Computed example of a mutant assay.
Amino acid sequence: MTDLTGRTVLIAGATSASGLAATRALTSAGARVVATGRSPEKLAPLAALGAHVETVDHSDERAVVELSRRLHSRGVSIDGLLHLVGGWRGGGGLAGQTEDDYRALEASFSALRHLSRAFDDDVRTSPAGRLAVVSSTAVARPLAGGANYAAVKAATEAWTRAVAQGYAKAAREAGEPLRAAAVIFRVSSLAGLEDRLATAYAELWGSDASELNDSILELQQKG
């Protein structure tokens, strides 16, 4: 595992099994973890692992901006952002893709937009910034019963690639080497991949940003 001593990572949507695995892996590697979610009760196990926890509704832009201000007022700057806000709704073919389902899924994309903007300066100017999102193989092969889900994930990937271009452009205009990278992890399902995702994210710091930025990394079950 890459030594992450001195790095601060914000895990958004940390109350899932993937968030727990990422918190465990990152703290074990020496990172300071800021774990965020909507439920104080569900954040408690992450605090027990040594994470600093913050209750926030990621889909609320003002709440996310206030989170960034609160952390900055304490002298906390983010080196990494792992976006785990998400969920699944689908089935029933194209006719079964309801507007309510889409709006529920869209909250994940809204959260990404709010978080990446609020912490853009942090990650972009970090000596080694790493932003990562979890997408789906459904983007490459969308199905009618998962059209809402695939559309939101496709938007997530497009936004993340735009973030990557912003990192590259800022470094180029400053005449400096690229130190920040935005990465997309694609999975068919996160079930059983929680530890692999955690390790893969931590290991991003072991590679050069220029090799990682604007990349799509597919995670699959072993065997």
Rank of each mutant, 00 (worst) to 15 (best):
L178H: 05
N148C: 03
L115C: 09
L217D: 12
L26D: 01
Y149F: 14
T23H: 01
A151K: 04
L219G: 12
G6F: 10
A21W: 10
V56T: 04
S108L: 06
V139G: 05
Y201Q: 00
L67S: 08
S126C: 02
G145S: 11
V56K: 01
G96M: 07
L49T: 02
A25L: 03
D120R: 09
V134Y: 02
A147V: 05
A155I: 13
L43S: 07
A170H: 10
A180F: 08
G30R: 06
S207A: 15
M1Q: 08
G19Y: 05
A209E: 03
Q97K: 02
A111N: 07
L4R: 01
I184Q: 01
A144C: 06
D57T: 13
A111W: 11
A17W: 03
S68M: 13
A35L: 06
T8V: 03
A198Y: 11
P127M: 00
A164R: 11
A35V: 12
L67C: 06
L190G: 08
L178V: 10
G206K: 03
R172W: 13
G206M: 04
T55W: 07
P142A: 09
A25R: 06
E157C: 08
Y167R: 09
L81D: 03
R186W: 04
D214A: 15
R69H: 05
G37K: 01
S18N: 08
L143I: 10
L143T: 14
L143G: 15
L49D: 05
R89K: 12
R113H: 12
T36Q: 13
G80D: 02
I78Q: 01
L219Y: 08
W88P: 02
R70C: 11
W159M: 11
A158S: 13
S28H: 12
R32D: 14
A150C: 11
H52E: 15
D121L: 15
A17N: 07
G223E: 12
E218G: 05
E173H: 15
A63V: 08
P40N: 03
L190A: 04
K222W: 14
G90Y: 13
S59M: 14
R103Y: 13
E218V: 09
L143E: 15
S116K: 10
A202S: 10
G93W: 06
T98E: 07
D79C: 09
L219I: 06
T98D: 03
E41Y: 01
K42G: 09
V133A: 10
E194W: 03
I11H: 03
A12K: 07
L105N: 02
E106T: 03
H72T: 14
A128M: 01
V123M: 02
S189M: 06
L197T: 02
F185K: 00
R117F: 05
G90D: 11
E157G: 08
D101N: 05
R196Q: 13
